[in-house]
Nucleic acid binder design. Structure first.
Lengths: 130, 130
DNA sequence: ACATGAAAACTACTCTGGTAGTACTATGGC
DNA sequence: GCCATAGTACTACCAGAGTAGTTTTCATGT
């Protein structure tokens, strides 16, 4: 399990709807994304079917409706996609990746505090390094 | 300029060769990647042509040979791809992205020191937050 | 019983990444 | 002068993401 998931933009948007609701029909998803995307209902339905083929979602029926639910967790997808990019751009060097993010982007001071705390925590719990 | 570049694995591998050498012929690139990928020379040549169509590389001729050079910097591509993912997965919240990387991966103590230093540096130079 | 309308199924098309075979061509060796 | 070879051009194919039209089906209100 835990294959390598690479989801496109629309697929992620759909997954986010499912993750936040637990389950939803195709038209629920369509309604949820209508505002930001304005796609045809059939587009959403088609994507959901394709995503089901790939094991990203599953469905049960409720009358004539298909109620879809996520088959992969947000964590699965997140780590899969991040690791992939980390591999591709930084040859798996996560620290370099993190450095890049911190160095090249604006981060407010509160978030910097949290990062400092996180690094300190990490240092404490892993004194040898890995 | 600075469009949004999304490069696949092979494309990145090719760009890395070009970035590190400045320029290279199709067969130079092929030779450089033969070990790790074992692809046909025509595959590399085809990719290079497609990449030229998209403005990622350009070429000059040297007798029979096409000498390719990068038209985008590693920085361009890096930030383009990272920002895209950050947008998709963390809705642009770079600090959350960095936290995720640090929290969920093994990082050795030397690298942790560097990260600590980087965060400290960042805090000093940006005392207001952004 | 039948029309309506909503939902799913089917089909289709575009783009991009990846992969490679085949065809053409120009150069260098002899 | 001619051929092998190296190198590019052209063509083709697959898969996956994205997009949507058309057709079928079926529950339901009248």
């Amino acid at each position: 399990m835990s294959r390598t998931y690479q989801l496109g933009d629309l697929q992620l948007a759909i997954m986010r709807v499912l993750w936040s609701r637990g389950e939803a029909s195709a038209s629920d998803v369509h309604r949820a994304l209508l505002e930001e995307r304005g796609l045809a209902p059939t587009t959403i339905a088609t994507m959901l079917r394709k995503m089901e083929d790939r094991g990203l979602v599953a469905h049960r029926t409720d009358g004539r409706k298909f109620i879809y639910r996520p088959e992969v967790t947000e964590e699965n997808v997140r780590s899969s996609m991040v690791d992939q990019l980390s591999e591709r751009l930084f040859r798996g060097n996560v620290a370099a990746f993190a450095s890049y993010l911190i160095a090249e982007h604006d981060i407010d001071s509160e978030e910097l505090n949290e990062l400092r705390e996180l690094v300190a925590e990490k240092t404490r719990t892993d004194p040898e390094g890995s």
